[in-house]
Design a protein around this nucleic acid. Structure first.
Lengths: 215, 215, 215, 215
DNA sequence: ACCTAAGCGAGACGGTACGTCACGTCTTCCT
DNA sequence: AGGAAGACGTGACGTACCGTCTCGCTTAGGT
C-alpha cells in the first residue's frame, strides 16, 4: 500500500500506526475464534498470534467485543446478489451464500456472542448494525427492485411501508437461517432453503398444495 | 416390604441435596442476568445472591452455561397456545407471548449467549435443544392440528414431511422474533407480528396484494 | 474382638466407640504422613484410609495436630537404653535408635511440623511434651544413674542442678541429632555419632587430642 | 563504553520488577508470621499487607515455603561474632544473639515449619541450606580460627576432618539452642548458655568437676 | 542532519474471577 | 448413641486475563 494514511488525516508528529498490523490483528482474531471460540479468546492471545504487543491492540480497539465485530464484519462483505432470472432463484442464491458464511466457525462463534453482548451495550449494538446488518440490507433492496422490474412483485405504493417490509424480510430471512444453523444445528442446505423460500413466497397454506401437486 | 426404601432410590446414604437451594439458585441466576448480563455474571455472585456456597453451585451444575440454560428454560415453560378461533389469531397470541418473554432482560442476555457458546459445545447445544427448543415445538404441533380441524390447513399426507415442516416453521417463527428483538433491537409488537403473520400465511406476493386491496 | 471397650468405661447408654478404629486411624495417619507429608495430609484422606467416617475422627481428636502428635508419639515408645558396659556405648546405642526413628519419613515429616505448630498453641506444646519429650527423659536419667553406679560420672550434689543437667543433655542430644538429620540432611550414622559423643563427653578441646592420639 | 547496558544484563526489555516490592513483601511476611503463625499465614494476606497484588507475589516466589525461607533468612544475617577475648566468651556472645533471634515469633513460627516441609522437598532443603545454614557457618570458622590464634584450640592437622568438625559443632550448637527454644520452650538465657558452653568445651565429665570444684 | 513525538515490543503491575480443595459442621439413615 | 455417607457454608488456593503502566527502542515528519 503506497499510502497508509488518507489525505485528510490530522497528520501530527510521531510515528504513524502500522497499517499492516490492523489486518494481521483481524486475521488473528478470526483464527482465534476458529480455534478457541469467543469465550476463550483472549486479547493477549490475539496479540501473540498477530505478532503484535497487547498495547498496540488496546490502542486501536476498546475491547474484545469491538474487535470481534470488526473481524466478523469483513466476512459478510463478500455477499452479493446473483441474477438468476427469477426472484426465488435470486433469494436462494443469496441465502445459500449467507448460510455458507454462517457455517464457518469464526462467524458462528463470534456473531451470536457479540449480539448477546449488545443486549446490554448500546454502542456495541449500533456498531453491529452499521458494520454488519444495515450494510447487508442492500441485498434485500436490490432483490426487490429487480423482482419489481420483472413484474414478480408489485411496486411500492408507500415508502414508509416499503422500508418496514425490508426490515421484516431481513428479520425473517436472517433469523430463519441463523436459527436453523445455530439453534437447530442443522445445515441450511439447498433442500431446506427451497422449502423456506416456498413458505416465504407463497405462505403456509400454499406450501401444502405445492407439495401435493408435483408428487 | 423387603426394603424400607423404594426400589428406585439410588444412593440413600448421606444428607440429601436441598431442594430449596435449586430454586433459589435459578432465581438468583435470572436476577443476576438482569443486573449484570451474561458476560459479567459470576457464579460467585449468583451463589451469594442465592444464599448458598459456591461449591454447592458447582456440585449441581458444570458451569455458567449449563446454569443459565436451566435458568432461562424455566421462562419459556409459561408459554401456551390460546384458542382464539382462527389460525392467524392463535399464532399472533403465542408469538406475542414469545416476544414478551424475549423482551425480558434475563432472556435477552442469557439466551443468545448460551446459543453462541453452544456452537463449540455439543453437550450444551443438546441441553438447549431438550430444555428449551424441543419442548416448545408442542405449540407448533398443537396449532397446526387445531387449524386442520378447522379446515384452515390441509391434512398431512406424509409424516416425515410433516415433521420437517414443523421444524421449518419453528425456525422461521422463532428466528424472526429473535432477530427482530435482539439484532434489530426493536419491539416485536402487535403491528409487527401482524405483518409477520401475513407473510407467513400468504407469502410475500400475497402481502403486497392484501395491503393494496383494503387500502 | 469380643469386647471393644475396657472394663473401666463410663458405660452410659448408646453404642460404645470402636477401639479398633483408634488404632486404624493412627496407623492410617502414619501411612498418610509417609505418602503425603504433613502439609498435604488431610483428615478426609486419613478417614478414608482407616475405613472410617470423618465424623468419627472429629469425635476423637480436635484436629490434625493432635492426631499427628498421637500418631508420632507411638513411634518413640520403642526406644530403650541398652546396657553395653560403658557410658559412651550406652549413649551410642540409644542415639542410634533415636536417629533410626527420626530417619523414618512419618517421624521426619510429622514431628517438626507439630513442633512448629506448637510455637503458637500452648495446649499442643504441652501435649507434645507429655506425649513425647518428657516420656523419653527416662533414658537420660537411667543412663546417668547407670554411669554413676559404674563410677563414670560423679554423684549429683544438688537435685535441682541435676534436673537442669538432664534437660540440658536432652536438648543437646536431641537437638544435635534432629539438626543433623533434618537440617543438614545427612545420616546420623555410627561414625557421626562417635564424633558427637566424643565432643559430648570430653569437650571440644579434648576432641582434637583424642583424634591425634590413636592415629 | 561500547554498550550502555552492562554485559551481564539479561532481558532488558519490558518493565523491570519493583525493587521496593521485594522488601515490602518480605517484611509483610514476617509481620504475618508474628500475627498468624506459619499455618494460618496466607499469601493473599501477605500481598495485602505489602500493598501488592497476589500475582506479583507468585511471580517471584514459587510458594509459601520459599517466601518464608527468604523472609526468615534475612533475620539471621545480622549475626556476628564479637571478639570478647576468649573462646567461651565469643561463643556465648554469638549463641545469645542466635537465641535472641530464635526467640522472635517470626523466626520460631517460620523456621521449624519450613524445615518440616523440607523433609519432602529437596529444592526447599537446598534453599534453606544455602540461604540460612551454610551462610552462618562462617561464624564457626571464624571462631575456631580466632581460638587457634589465641592457642585455645590446636591447629587442624587434616582439612577434611576440620570441615567435618565444623559441621558437627554447628549441628550441636544450633540443634541445642533450637531444641531448647522450640521444643523445651524455655529461654536460652545467659545461665543456660553458660551451662551449655561448659559441656561443649569440657564435656560431661568435666562439667561435674567444674561445678563441684569452685562451688 | 537533527529533533521530537508517537508507535511499538516486552513484560511487570493491581485487580477480579476462576474452579478446586479441605475444612469442620450438619443432616439423613442404619446398626 | 455410634457410625457411614455425603451435602453444606467457608475460605484459601494457584492460575488466567484483564486493562494499565513503565521501560528502552524504532520510525518518520518537521525543521
Amino acid at each position: 500500500m503506497q499510502s497508509s494514511t488518507p489525505a485528510g488525516r490530522a497528520g501530527r508528529a510521531g510515528r504513524p500506526r502500522s497499517a499492516a498490523a490492523n489486518a494481521a490483528i483481524l486475521a488473528a482474531t478470526r483464527a482465534a475464534l476458529v480455534d478457541l471460540g469467543w469465550s476463550k479468546l483472549t486479547l493477549g492471545d490475539v496479540a501473540t498470534r498477530a505478532g503484535v504487543a497487547k498495547t498496540t491492540l488496546y490502542r486501536r480497539w476498546a475491547g474484545k467485543n469491538e474487535l470481534v465485530v470488526d473481524a466478523v464484519a469483513e466476512l459478510f462483505d463478500e455477499l452479493e446478489l446473483p441474477d438468476r432470472g427469477c426472484l426465488a432463484a435470486d433469494i436462494e442464491g443469496v441465502v445459500l451464500q449467507f448460510a455458507a458464511i454462517l457455517a464457518r466457525p469464526e462467524a458462528k462463534s463470534g456473531l451470536m456472542a457479540v449480539v448477546a453482548e449488545s443486549t446490554r451495550d448500546d454502542a456495541l449494538r449500533e456498531r453491529i448494525r452499521t458494520s454488519i446488518v444495515e450494510r447487508q440490507k442492500r441485498l434485500v433492496l436490490e432483490g426487490r427492485s429487480r423482482a419489481q422490474d420483472r413484474g414478480e412483485l408489485p411496486p411500492e405504493p408507500d415508502a414508509a411501508e416499503a422500508a418496514r417490509t425490508v426490515d421484516l424480510i431481513f428479520d425473517v430471512v436472517a433469523g430463519a437461517v441463523v436459527h436453523r444453523t445455530l439453534v437447530s444445528a442443522e445445515a441450511a442446505d439447498e433442500e431446506w432453503v427451497r422449502g423456506f423460500i416456498r413458505v416465504l413466497l407463497t405462505g403456509l397454506a400454499g406450501t401444502e398444495e405445492d407439495q401435493a401437486g408435483p408428487g
